[in-house]
Design a protein around this nucleic acid. Structure first.
Lengths: 255, 255
DNA sequence: GCAAGCCTGTCAGCGACCTGTCAGTGGGCC
DNA sequence: GGCCCACTGACAGGTCGCTGACAGGCTTGC
Protein backbone atom coordinates (compact mmCIF):
# COMPACT_ATOMS: atom_id res chain seq x y z
CA UNK A 1 0.00 0.00 0.00
CA UNK A 2 1.51 3.20 -1.03
CA UNK A 3 -0.49 5.73 0.85
CA UNK A 4 -3.88 4.98 2.18
CA UNK A 5 -4.18 8.33 3.79
CA UNK A 6 -3.81 10.09 0.53
CA UNK A 7 -6.78 8.14 -0.67
CA UNK A 8 -8.70 8.64 2.47
CA UNK A 9 -8.32 12.35 2.36
CA UNK A 10 -8.80 12.78 -1.36
CA UNK A 11 -10.98 15.80 -1.50
CA UNK A 12 -12.87 15.64 -4.74
CA UNK A 13 -13.48 11.97 -5.05
CA UNK A 14 -13.28 9.17 -2.60
CA UNK A 15 -10.74 6.51 -3.33
CA UNK A 16 -11.37 5.10 -6.74
CA UNK A 17 -11.83 1.70 -5.27
CA UNK A 18 -13.76 1.92 -2.07
CA UNK A 19 -11.10 0.77 0.28
CA UNK A 20 -12.11 -0.83 3.47
CA UNK A 21 -13.22 1.63 6.06
CA UNK A 22 -11.61 -0.57 8.61
CA UNK A 23 -8.66 1.13 10.18
CA UNK A 24 -6.82 0.91 13.41
CA UNK A 25 -7.72 3.52 16.02
CA UNK A 26 -4.83 5.71 14.95
CA UNK A 27 -5.93 5.58 11.33
CA UNK A 28 -3.13 3.36 10.13
CA UNK A 29 -4.04 0.41 7.96
CA UNK A 30 -5.25 -2.81 9.48
CA UNK A 31 -2.56 -5.45 9.80
CA UNK A 32 -3.22 -9.00 8.72
CA UNK A 33 -0.97 -12.00 9.04
CA UNK A 34 -1.42 -14.78 6.48
CA UNK A 35 -0.14 -18.20 7.45
CA UNK A 36 -0.05 -20.84 4.74
CA UNK A 37 2.60 -23.11 3.34
CA UNK A 38 1.35 -23.05 -0.23
CA UNK A 39 2.98 -20.15 -1.99
CA UNK A 40 0.35 -19.75 -4.61
CA UNK A 41 -2.36 -19.48 -2.06
CA UNK A 42 -0.64 -17.09 0.24
CA UNK A 43 0.32 -14.93 -2.73
CA UNK A 44 -3.24 -14.84 -3.87
CA UNK A 45 -4.46 -13.96 -0.43
CA UNK A 46 -1.83 -11.31 0.08
CA UNK A 47 -2.75 -9.66 -3.16
CA UNK A 48 -6.41 -9.64 -2.35
CA UNK A 49 -5.92 -8.34 1.17
CA UNK A 50 -3.46 -5.69 0.11
CA UNK A 51 -5.99 -4.63 -2.40
CA UNK A 52 -8.31 -3.95 0.52
CA UNK A 53 -5.75 -1.48 1.67
CA UNK A 54 -4.51 -3.67 4.46
CA UNK A 55 -0.98 -4.24 5.58
CA UNK A 56 -0.12 -7.89 5.01
CA UNK A 57 2.63 -10.15 6.20
CA UNK A 58 2.98 -13.83 5.47
CA UNK A 59 4.40 -16.86 7.24
CA UNK A 60 4.78 -20.38 5.91
CA UNK A 61 4.60 -22.41 9.11
CA UNK A 62 3.62 -22.31 12.73
CA UNK A 63 6.97 -21.24 14.04
CA UNK A 64 7.14 -18.41 11.52
CA UNK A 65 3.64 -17.40 12.42
CA UNK A 66 4.40 -17.08 16.10
CA UNK A 67 7.50 -15.11 15.37
CA UNK A 68 5.74 -12.82 12.91
CA UNK A 69 2.86 -12.30 15.30
CA UNK A 70 5.26 -11.17 17.95
CA UNK A 71 6.79 -8.31 16.06
CA UNK A 72 4.11 -7.58 13.47
CA UNK A 73 1.27 -7.52 16.00
CA UNK A 74 -1.48 -8.20 13.47
CA UNK A 75 -5.08 -7.20 13.97
CA UNK A 76 -6.23 -10.44 12.40
CA UNK A 77 -4.76 -13.73 11.26
CA UNK A 78 -5.60 -15.99 8.35
CA UNK A 79 -4.43 -19.42 9.33
CA UNK A 80 -4.26 -22.65 7.43
CA UNK A 81 -5.08 -25.46 9.86
CA UNK A 82 -2.75 -27.76 7.99
CA UNK A 83 0.81 -26.64 8.53
CA UNK A 84 4.06 -28.51 8.19
CA UNK A 85 5.11 -28.13 11.80
CA UNK A 86 2.30 -27.61 14.32
CA UNK A 87 -1.38 -28.14 13.81
CA UNK A 88 -3.96 -25.39 13.89
CA UNK A 89 -4.84 -25.76 17.52
CA UNK A 90 -1.26 -25.53 18.61
CA UNK A 91 -0.55 -22.47 16.52
CA UNK A 92 -3.69 -20.86 17.80
CA UNK A 93 -2.64 -21.49 21.39
CA UNK A 94 0.76 -19.94 20.83
CA UNK A 95 -0.64 -16.98 18.97
CA UNK A 96 -3.08 -16.33 21.73
CA UNK A 97 -0.32 -16.40 24.26
CA UNK A 98 1.05 -13.24 22.69
CA UNK A 99 -2.03 -11.69 21.25
CA UNK A 100 -4.99 -12.23 23.44
CA UNK A 101 -7.84 -11.10 21.34
CA UNK A 102 -6.66 -11.48 17.80
CA UNK A 103 -9.44 -12.87 15.63
CA UNK A 104 -8.44 -15.79 13.47
CA UNK A 105 -9.85 -17.00 10.20
CA UNK A 106 -9.03 -20.64 9.57
CA UNK A 107 -8.52 -22.17 6.17
CA UNK A 108 -9.41 -25.80 5.96
CA UNK A 109 -9.88 -28.52 3.39
CA UNK A 110 -13.50 -29.27 2.68
CA UNK A 111 -13.23 -32.86 3.78
CA UNK A 112 -11.55 -31.95 7.06
CA UNK A 113 -13.14 -33.23 10.21
CA UNK A 114 -15.84 -30.83 11.19
CA UNK A 115 -15.55 -31.27 14.93
CA UNK A 116 -11.93 -30.15 15.01
CA UNK A 117 -13.01 -26.91 13.46
CA UNK A 118 -15.79 -26.58 15.96
CA UNK A 119 -13.19 -26.53 18.69
CA UNK A 120 -11.12 -23.96 16.90
CA UNK A 121 -13.85 -21.49 16.26
CA UNK A 122 -15.32 -21.75 19.71
CA UNK A 123 -13.74 -18.48 20.70
CA UNK A 124 -15.67 -16.53 18.10
CA UNK A 125 -13.24 -17.18 15.33
CA UNK A 126 -14.38 -18.31 11.93
CA UNK A 127 -13.30 -20.53 9.10
CA UNK A 128 -13.66 -21.02 5.35
CA UNK A 129 -13.15 -24.22 3.43
CA UNK A 130 -10.85 -24.56 0.46
CA UNK A 131 -11.30 -23.76 -2.27
CA UNK A 132 -12.73 -20.47 -1.12
CA UNK A 133 -13.48 -17.29 -2.95
CA UNK A 134 -11.46 -14.21 -2.15
CA UNK A 135 -14.58 -12.18 -1.53
CA UNK A 136 -15.54 -14.65 1.09
CA UNK A 137 -12.24 -14.45 2.90
CA UNK A 138 -12.26 -10.69 2.82
CA UNK A 139 -15.84 -10.51 4.00
CA UNK A 140 -15.27 -12.87 6.88
CA UNK A 141 -12.18 -11.04 7.97
CA UNK A 142 -14.07 -7.81 7.94
CA UNK A 143 -16.83 -9.39 9.95
CA UNK A 144 -14.40 -10.76 12.50
CA UNK A 145 -12.68 -7.47 12.97
CA UNK A 146 -15.95 -5.66 13.16
CA UNK A 147 -16.99 -7.97 15.91
CA UNK A 148 -13.88 -7.24 17.91
CA UNK A 149 -14.62 -3.55 17.55
CA UNK A 150 -11.64 -2.89 15.42
CA UNK A 151 -12.36 0.40 13.81
CA UNK A 152 -12.35 3.90 15.11
CA UNK A 153 -14.35 4.95 12.13
CA UNK A 154 -17.02 2.37 12.60
CA UNK A 155 -17.28 -0.03 9.73
CA UNK A 156 -20.81 -0.72 8.68
CA UNK A 157 -22.02 -4.21 7.92
CA UNK A 158 -24.74 -2.86 5.69
CA UNK A 159 -24.00 -2.05 2.09
CA UNK A 160 -26.32 0.38 0.41
CA UNK A 161 -26.77 1.31 -3.23
CA UNK A 162 -29.88 3.30 -3.91
CA UNK A 163 -32.79 1.52 -2.31
CA UNK A 164 -30.94 -1.75 -2.28
CA UNK A 165 -29.37 -2.90 0.97
CA UNK A 166 -27.28 -5.91 1.84
CA UNK A 167 -26.43 -6.81 5.39
CA UNK A 168 -23.17 -8.70 5.56
CA UNK A 169 -23.88 -9.97 9.05
CA UNK A 170 -27.43 -11.19 8.71
CA UNK A 171 -27.23 -11.80 4.98
CA UNK A 172 -30.46 -9.91 4.56
CA UNK A 173 -30.99 -8.25 1.24
CA UNK A 174 -33.81 -5.92 0.42
CA UNK A 175 -34.82 -3.67 -2.38
CA UNK A 176 -36.97 -0.96 -0.85
CA UNK A 177 -39.36 -2.78 1.44
CA UNK A 178 -39.17 -6.09 -0.33
CA UNK A 179 -37.00 -8.77 1.18
CA UNK A 180 -35.00 -10.73 -1.35
CA UNK A 181 -33.86 -14.33 -1.03
CA UNK A 182 -30.52 -15.10 -2.62
CA UNK A 183 -28.47 -18.24 -2.95
CA UNK A 184 -24.90 -18.21 -1.68
CA UNK A 185 -23.37 -17.46 -5.06
CA UNK A 186 -25.89 -14.80 -5.87
CA UNK A 187 -25.20 -13.18 -2.53
CA UNK A 188 -21.48 -13.04 -3.08
CA UNK A 189 -21.84 -11.70 -6.56
CA UNK A 190 -24.16 -8.98 -5.37
CA UNK A 191 -21.88 -8.14 -2.50
CA UNK A 192 -18.96 -7.72 -4.85
CA UNK A 193 -20.96 -5.50 -7.14
CA UNK A 194 -22.22 -3.43 -4.24
CA UNK A 195 -18.79 -3.01 -2.78
CA UNK A 196 -17.85 -1.42 -6.11
CA UNK A 197 -20.82 0.69 -7.03
CA UNK A 198 -20.67 2.72 -10.22
CA UNK A 199 -17.57 0.89 -11.27
CA UNK A 200 -17.50 -1.35 -14.27
CA UNK A 201 -16.30 -4.79 -13.31
CA UNK A 202 -15.13 -7.17 -15.99
CA UNK A 203 -16.22 -10.77 -16.03
CA UNK A 204 -12.64 -11.79 -15.34
CA UNK A 205 -12.48 -9.62 -12.24
CA UNK A 206 -15.75 -11.00 -11.03
CA UNK A 207 -14.65 -14.55 -11.69
CA UNK A 208 -11.39 -14.01 -9.86
CA UNK A 209 -13.02 -12.52 -6.85
CA UNK A 210 -16.33 -14.22 -6.44
CA UNK A 211 -15.73 -17.71 -7.68
CA UNK A 212 -13.53 -20.25 -5.98
CA UNK A 213 -9.91 -19.74 -6.82
CA UNK A 214 -9.60 -23.04 -8.63
CA UNK A 215 -12.71 -22.62 -10.67
CA UNK A 216 -11.91 -23.79 -14.16
CA UNK A 217 -15.10 -22.94 -15.95
CA UNK A 218 -16.08 -20.33 -18.43
CA UNK A 219 -16.88 -16.69 -17.88
CA UNK A 220 -20.35 -17.60 -18.99
CA UNK A 221 -21.36 -18.38 -15.42
CA UNK A 222 -21.04 -14.75 -14.60
CA UNK A 223 -23.61 -13.89 -17.22
CA UNK A 224 -25.83 -16.59 -15.88
CA UNK A 225 -25.70 -15.37 -12.31
CA UNK A 226 -26.13 -11.79 -13.32
CA UNK A 227 -29.25 -12.90 -15.06
CA UNK A 228 -30.45 -14.63 -11.86
CA UNK A 229 -29.74 -11.54 -9.83
CA UNK A 230 -31.62 -9.39 -12.25
CA UNK A 231 -34.67 -11.55 -11.97
CA UNK A 232 -34.66 -11.12 -8.23
CA UNK A 233 -33.55 -7.52 -7.95
CA UNK A 234 -34.45 -5.65 -11.07
CA UNK A 235 -37.48 -7.44 -12.42
CA UNK A 236 -40.43 -5.08 -12.58
CA UNK A 237 -38.35 -2.24 -11.17
CA UNK A 238 -35.96 0.33 -12.51
CA UNK A 239 -32.85 -1.70 -13.27
CA UNK A 240 -29.76 -1.20 -11.14
CA UNK A 241 -27.52 -3.78 -12.73
CA UNK A 242 -26.29 -2.63 -16.10
CA UNK A 243 -24.35 -4.39 -18.83
CA UNK A 244 -21.53 -2.46 -20.39
CA UNK A 245 -21.05 -4.39 -23.56
CA UNK A 246 -17.47 -5.43 -24.11
CA UNK A 247 -16.47 -4.20 -20.66
CA UNK A 248 -18.46 -5.81 -17.89
CA UNK A 249 -21.19 -4.99 -15.41
CA UNK A 250 -21.97 -2.08 -13.10
CA UNK A 251 -24.41 -1.58 -10.31
CA UNK A 252 -25.67 1.88 -9.56
CA UNK A 253 -28.60 3.62 -7.93
CA UNK A 254 -31.75 3.50 -9.97
CA UNK A 255 -31.37 7.27 -10.34
CA UNK B 1 -0.27 0.46 -38.93
CA UNK B 2 0.33 3.93 -40.23
CA UNK B 3 3.07 5.88 -38.58
CA UNK B 4 3.62 5.76 -34.91
CA UNK B 5 6.85 7.64 -35.10
CA UNK B 6 5.01 10.65 -36.24
CA UNK B 7 3.49 10.68 -32.81
CA UNK B 8 6.67 10.09 -30.98
CA UNK B 9 8.76 12.62 -32.72
CA UNK B 10 6.37 15.52 -32.79
CA UNK B 11 9.28 17.53 -31.53
CA UNK B 12 8.42 21.15 -31.81
CA UNK B 13 5.99 21.36 -28.94
CA UNK B 14 7.00 19.24 -26.04
CA UNK B 15 4.29 20.43 -23.72
CA UNK B 16 1.77 20.52 -26.48
CA UNK B 17 0.25 17.23 -25.64
CA UNK B 18 -1.26 17.38 -22.23
CA UNK B 19 0.99 15.00 -20.42
CA UNK B 20 -0.43 12.73 -17.85
CA UNK B 21 -1.14 14.37 -14.57
CA UNK B 22 0.10 11.25 -12.95
CA UNK B 23 3.38 11.87 -11.26
CA UNK B 24 5.26 10.36 -8.42
CA UNK B 25 4.97 12.18 -5.12
CA UNK B 26 8.20 14.05 -5.77
CA UNK B 27 6.98 15.20 -9.16
CA UNK B 28 9.27 12.97 -11.16
CA UNK B 29 7.76 11.01 -14.02
CA UNK B 30 5.99 7.75 -13.43
CA UNK B 31 8.13 4.70 -14.13
CA UNK B 32 6.74 1.84 -16.15
CA UNK B 33 8.35 -1.48 -16.94
CA UNK B 34 7.28 -3.21 -20.15
CA UNK B 35 7.90 -6.94 -20.35
CA UNK B 36 7.37 -8.60 -23.70
CA UNK B 37 9.49 -10.78 -25.92
CA UNK B 38 8.16 -9.41 -29.20
CA UNK B 39 10.27 -6.44 -30.11
CA UNK B 40 7.68 -4.85 -32.31
CA UNK B 41 5.16 -4.85 -29.57
CA UNK B 42 7.36 -3.63 -26.80
CA UNK B 43 8.64 -0.84 -29.06
CA UNK B 44 5.12 0.18 -29.83
CA UNK B 45 4.22 0.19 -26.19
CA UNK B 46 7.32 2.04 -25.14
CA UNK B 47 6.67 4.78 -27.60
CA UNK B 48 3.10 5.17 -26.53
CA UNK B 49 3.98 5.25 -22.86
CA UNK B 50 6.87 7.62 -23.33
CA UNK B 51 4.50 9.84 -25.17
CA UNK B 52 2.48 9.98 -21.97
CA UNK B 53 5.52 11.49 -20.39
CA UNK B 54 6.39 8.37 -18.51
CA UNK B 55 9.76 6.86 -17.92
CA UNK B 56 9.87 3.47 -19.65
CA UNK B 57 12.17 0.50 -19.44
CA UNK B 58 11.75 -2.82 -21.21
CA UNK B 59 12.60 -6.44 -20.54
CA UNK B 60 12.22 -9.42 -22.85
CA UNK B 61 11.72 -12.23 -20.39
CA UNK B 62 10.88 -13.05 -16.82
CA UNK B 63 14.41 -13.07 -15.54
CA UNK B 64 15.08 -9.71 -17.13
CA UNK B 65 11.87 -8.39 -15.67
CA UNK B 66 12.78 -9.33 -12.15
CA UNK B 67 16.21 -7.83 -12.56
CA UNK B 68 14.87 -4.63 -14.07
CA UNK B 69 12.26 -4.35 -11.39
CA UNK B 70 14.93 -4.53 -8.77
CA UNK B 71 16.92 -1.55 -9.91
CA UNK B 72 14.38 0.40 -11.89
CA UNK B 73 11.67 0.20 -9.22
CA UNK B 74 8.78 0.81 -11.56
CA UNK B 75 5.46 2.24 -10.46
CA UNK B 76 3.62 -0.10 -12.80
CA UNK B 77 4.38 -3.08 -14.99
CA UNK B 78 3.01 -4.15 -18.36
CA UNK B 79 3.51 -7.87 -18.55
CA UNK B 80 2.94 -10.35 -21.32
CA UNK B 81 1.64 -13.55 -19.74
CA UNK B 82 3.41 -15.58 -22.40
CA UNK B 83 7.13 -15.30 -21.85
CA UNK B 84 9.93 -17.56 -22.98
CA UNK B 85 11.09 -18.46 -19.50
CA UNK B 86 8.44 -18.19 -16.76
CA UNK B 87 4.71 -17.87 -17.05
CA UNK B 88 2.76 -14.84 -15.97
CA UNK B 89 1.90 -16.00 -12.51
CA UNK B 90 5.47 -16.91 -11.73
CA UNK B 91 6.82 -13.56 -12.89
CA UNK B 92 4.11 -11.84 -10.94
CA UNK B 93 5.13 -13.68 -7.81
CA UNK B 94 8.76 -12.76 -8.22
CA UNK B 95 7.96 -9.17 -8.98
CA UNK B 96 5.77 -8.95 -5.94
CA UNK B 97 8.53 -10.33 -3.80
CA UNK B 98 10.50 -7.17 -4.48
CA UNK B 99 7.80 -4.67 -5.16
CA UNK B 100 4.89 -5.33 -2.95
CA UNK B 101 2.29 -3.14 -4.43
CA UNK B 102 3.14 -2.58 -8.06
CA UNK B 103 0.06 -2.77 -10.17
CA UNK B 104 0.41 -5.04 -13.17
CA UNK B 105 -1.31 -4.90 -16.51
CA UNK B 106 -1.25 -8.24 -18.28
CA UNK B 107 -1.18 -8.74 -22.01
CA UNK B 108 -2.76 -11.90 -23.25
CA UNK B 109 -3.76 -13.49 -26.52
CA UNK B 110 -7.45 -13.33 -27.17
CA UNK B 111 -7.86 -17.05 -27.66
CA UNK B 112 -6.07 -17.69 -24.42
CA UNK B 113 -8.34 -15.51 -22.39
CA UNK B 114 -9.49 -18.21 -20.07
CA UNK B 115 -6.10 -19.79 -20.04
CA UNK B 116 -4.41 -18.91 -16.77
CA UNK B 117 -5.76 -15.43 -16.39
CA UNK B 118 -7.48 -16.97 -13.45
CA UNK B 119 -6.27 -15.35 -10.30
CA UNK B 120 -4.27 -12.71 -12.02
CA UNK B 121 -6.75 -9.93 -11.54
CA UNK B 122 -7.62 -10.98 -8.02
CA UNK B 123 -5.27 -8.49 -6.49
CA UNK B 124 -6.82 -5.65 -8.38
CA UNK B 125 -4.60 -6.02 -11.39
CA UNK B 126 -6.00 -5.88 -14.87
CA UNK B 127 -5.40 -7.23 -18.32
CA UNK B 128 -5.98 -6.46 -21.98
CA UNK B 129 -6.19 -8.94 -24.80
CA UNK B 130 -4.11 -8.76 -27.95
CA UNK B 131 -4.53 -7.12 -30.26
CA UNK B 132 -5.18 -4.15 -28.05
CA UNK B 133 -5.36 -0.47 -28.76
CA UNK B 134 -2.77 1.81 -27.26
CA UNK B 135 -5.42 4.04 -25.75
CA UNK B 136 -6.72 1.09 -23.90
CA UNK B 137 -3.37 0.17 -22.47
CA UNK B 138 -2.68 3.70 -21.41
CA UNK B 139 -6.13 4.11 -19.93
CA UNK B 140 -5.90 0.93 -17.94
CA UNK B 141 -2.47 1.75 -16.66
CA UNK B 142 -3.68 5.11 -15.53
CA UNK B 143 -6.62 3.50 -13.82
CA UNK B 144 -4.39 1.03 -12.03
CA UNK B 145 -2.03 3.68 -10.82
CA UNK B 146 -4.84 5.95 -9.82
CA UNK B 147 -6.19 3.24 -7.66
CA UNK B 148 -2.97 2.70 -5.88
CA UNK B 149 -2.95 6.37 -5.06
CA UNK B 150 -0.02 7.14 -7.24
CA UNK B 151 -0.25 10.83 -7.74
CA UNK B 152 0.43 13.75 -5.51
CA UNK B 153 -1.54 15.92 -7.84
CA UNK B 154 -4.62 13.79 -7.83
CA UNK B 155 -5.48 12.32 -11.16
CA UNK B 156 -9.15 12.32 -11.88
CA UNK B 157 -11.04 9.51 -13.53
CA UNK B 158 -13.44 12.00 -15.03
CA UNK B 159 -12.54 13.78 -18.23
CA UNK B 160 -14.25 17.08 -18.84
CA UNK B 161 -14.52 19.25 -21.91
CA UNK B 162 -17.09 21.97 -21.65
CA UNK B 163 -20.32 20.40 -20.50
CA UNK B 164 -19.24 17.01 -21.70
CA UNK B 165 -17.95 14.51 -19.15
CA UNK B 166 -16.61 11.00 -19.44
CA UNK B 167 -16.04 8.81 -16.42
CA UNK B 168 -13.43 6.18 -17.04
CA UNK B 169 -14.47 4.08 -14.08
CA UNK B 170 -18.19 3.88 -14.61
CA UNK B 171 -18.04 4.44 -18.35
CA UNK B 172 -20.67 7.13 -17.94
CA UNK B 173 -20.76 9.86 -20.50
CA UNK B 174 -22.96 12.89 -20.30
CA UNK B 175 -23.48 16.09 -22.11
CA UNK B 176 -24.94 18.52 -19.63
CA UNK B 177 -27.63 16.56 -17.86
CA UNK B 178 -28.22 14.09 -20.63
CA UNK B 179 -26.71 10.66 -20.24
CA UNK B 180 -25.22 9.29 -23.42
CA UNK B 181 -24.88 5.64 -24.36
CA UNK B 182 -21.78 4.75 -26.35
CA UNK B 183 -20.47 1.54 -27.82
CA UNK B 184 -16.99 0.38 -26.89
CA UNK B 185 -15.36 1.88 -29.96
CA UNK B 186 -17.23 5.14 -29.66
CA UNK B 187 -16.19 5.34 -26.05
CA UNK B 188 -12.53 4.90 -26.85
CA UNK B 189 -12.63 7.38 -29.65
CA UNK B 190 -14.28 9.97 -27.47
CA UNK B 191 -11.85 9.33 -24.68
CA UNK B 192 -8.95 9.92 -27.02
CA UNK B 193 -10.45 13.14 -28.30
CA UNK B 194 -11.19 14.34 -24.80
CA UNK B 195 -7.74 13.56 -23.57
CA UNK B 196 -6.52 15.93 -26.29
CA UNK B 197 -8.99 18.77 -26.24
CA UNK B 198 -8.47 21.68 -28.59
CA UNK B 199 -5.87 19.70 -30.44
CA UNK B 200 -6.30 18.56 -33.99
CA UNK B 201 -5.84 14.84 -34.30
CA UNK B 202 -5.24 13.31 -37.69
CA UNK B 203 -7.08 10.24 -38.80
CA UNK B 204 -3.80 8.37 -38.80
CA UNK B 205 -3.14 9.31 -35.21
CA UNK B 206 -6.61 8.30 -34.22
CA UNK B 207 -6.31 5.02 -36.04
CA UNK B 208 -2.99 4.28 -34.39
CA UNK B 209 -4.23 5.04 -30.96
CA UNK B 210 -7.80 3.95 -30.83
CA UNK B 211 -7.93 0.99 -33.16
CA UNK B 212 -6.23 -2.31 -32.51
CA UNK B 213 -2.63 -2.25 -33.57
CA UNK B 214 -3.13 -4.83 -36.28
CA UNK B 215 -6.15 -3.17 -37.75
CA UNK B 216 -5.90 -3.45 -41.50
CA UNK B 217 -8.82 -1.36 -42.61
CA UNK B 218 -9.20 2.06 -44.07
CA UNK B 219 -9.09 5.42 -42.37
CA UNK B 220 -12.66 5.76 -43.40
CA UNK B 221 -13.77 4.07 -40.18
CA UNK B 222 -12.64 7.10 -38.30
CA UNK B 223 -14.97 9.29 -40.28
CA UNK B 224 -17.71 6.83 -39.70
CA UNK B 225 -17.25 6.72 -35.96
CA UNK B 226 -16.89 10.45 -35.73
CA UNK B 227 -20.20 10.65 -37.44
CA UNK B 228 -21.70 8.24 -34.91
CA UNK B 229 -20.31 10.28 -32.08
CA UNK B 230 -21.72 13.46 -33.50
CA UNK B 231 -25.15 11.99 -33.67
CA UNK B 232 -25.00 11.12 -30.02
CA UNK B 233 -23.14 14.12 -28.68
CA UNK B 234 -23.65 17.07 -30.94
CA UNK B 235 -27.02 16.48 -32.52
CA UNK B 236 -29.38 19.33 -31.67
CA UNK B 237 -26.71 21.06 -29.63
CA UNK B 238 -23.81 23.39 -30.27
CA UNK B 239 -21.24 21.12 -31.89
CA UNK B 240 -18.10 20.25 -29.98
CA UNK B 241 -16.50 17.94 -32.49
CA UNK B 242 -15.09 19.87 -35.41
CA UNK B 243 -13.61 18.77 -38.70
CA UNK B 244 -10.44 20.45 -39.79
CA UNK B 245 -10.45 19.69 -43.44
CA UNK B 246 -7.28 18.01 -44.62
CA UNK B 247 -5.96 17.79 -41.07
CA UNK B 248 -8.25 15.87 -38.78
CA UNK B 249 -10.66 16.39 -35.92
CA UNK B 250 -10.75 18.47 -32.76
CA UNK B 251 -12.97 18.50 -29.76
CA UNK B 252 -13.41 21.69 -27.80
CA UNK B 253 -15.86 23.34 -25.46
CA UNK B 254 -18.99 24.55 -27.17
CA UNK B 255 -17.90 28.07 -26.18
C1' DG C 1 -31.17 -44.37 3.84
C1' DC C 2 -34.02 -42.75 0.34
C1' DA C 3 -36.32 -39.30 -2.23
C1' DA C 4 -37.23 -34.63 -3.31
C1' DG C 5 -35.62 -30.25 -3.95
C1' DC C 6 -32.29 -26.90 -4.50
C1' DC C 7 -28.08 -25.12 -6.21
C1' DT C 8 -24.44 -24.88 -9.42
C1' DG C 9 -22.60 -24.94 -13.77
C1' DT C 10 -22.72 -26.55 -19.05
C1' DC C 11 -24.48 -26.02 -23.42
C1' DA C 12 -26.64 -24.30 -27.31
C1' DG C 13 -29.76 -21.31 -29.76
C1' DC C 14 -31.43 -16.85 -30.47
C1' DG C 15 -31.53 -12.18 -30.88
C1' DA C 16 -29.59 -7.87 -30.48
C1' DC C 17 -26.00 -5.14 -31.16
C1' DC C 18 -21.57 -3.69 -33.11
C1' DT C 19 -18.18 -3.22 -36.53
C1' DG C 20 -16.46 -2.13 -40.79
C1' DT C 21 -17.17 -1.93 -46.15
C1' DC C 22 -19.04 0.30 -49.87
C1' DA C 23 -20.96 3.58 -52.57
C1' DG C 24 -23.49 7.61 -53.44
C1' DT C 25 -24.00 12.43 -52.06
C1' DG C 26 -22.87 16.82 -50.53
C1' DG C 27 -19.96 20.64 -49.58
C1' DG C 28 -15.67 23.31 -49.45
C1' DC C 29 -11.88 25.16 -51.76
C1' DC C 30 -9.05 26.50 -55.62
C1' DG D 1 -16.79 24.56 -62.31
C1' DG D 2 -14.30 20.76 -60.96
C1' DC D 3 -11.91 18.06 -57.76
C1' DC D 4 -11.24 16.21 -53.55
C1' DC D 5 -12.48 15.33 -49.08
C1' DA D 6 -15.78 14.28 -45.79
C1' DC D 7 -20.32 12.50 -44.45
C1' DT D 8 -23.66 9.08 -44.01
C1' DG D 9 -27.25 5.46 -45.31
C1' DA D 10 -27.47 0.67 -46.27
C1' DC D 11 -25.84 -3.69 -45.47
C1' DA D 12 -23.31 -8.09 -44.25
C1' DG D 13 -20.94 -10.61 -41.08
C1' DG D 14 -19.58 -11.39 -36.74
C1' DT D 15 -19.57 -11.02 -31.83
C1' DC D 16 -21.56 -10.72 -27.48
C1' DG D 17 -24.82 -11.41 -24.02
C1' DC D 18 -29.09 -13.61 -22.42
C1' DT D 19 -31.71 -17.39 -21.16
C1' DG D 20 -34.16 -21.96 -21.30
C1' DA D 21 -33.19 -26.72 -20.76
C1' DC D 22 -30.71 -29.99 -18.45
C1' DA D 23 -27.38 -32.86 -15.57
C1' DG D 24 -24.92 -33.80 -11.48
C1' DG D 25 -24.20 -33.22 -6.81
C1' DC D 26 -25.26 -31.84 -2.42
C1' DT D 27 -28.58 -30.92 1.24
C1' DT D 28 -32.71 -31.68 3.67
C1' DG D 29 -36.44 -33.87 5.43
C1' DC D 30 -38.92 -37.83 6.24
Amino acid sequence: MTDVNALESAPSRPAARPRSLLTRPDGSPVRVLVVDDEDTLSDLLSMALRYEGWDVRTAADGAGAVKAARDFRPDAVVLDVMLPDFDGLEVLRRLRADLNEVPVLFLTARDAVEDRIAGLTAGGDDYVTKPFSLEEVVARLRALMRRVGMSAVRDDAVLRVGDLTLDEDSHEVRRGEAEIELTATEFELLRFLMRNPKRVLSKAQILDRVWHYDFGGQANVVELYVSYLRKKIDLGRTPMIHTVRGAGYVIKPAA
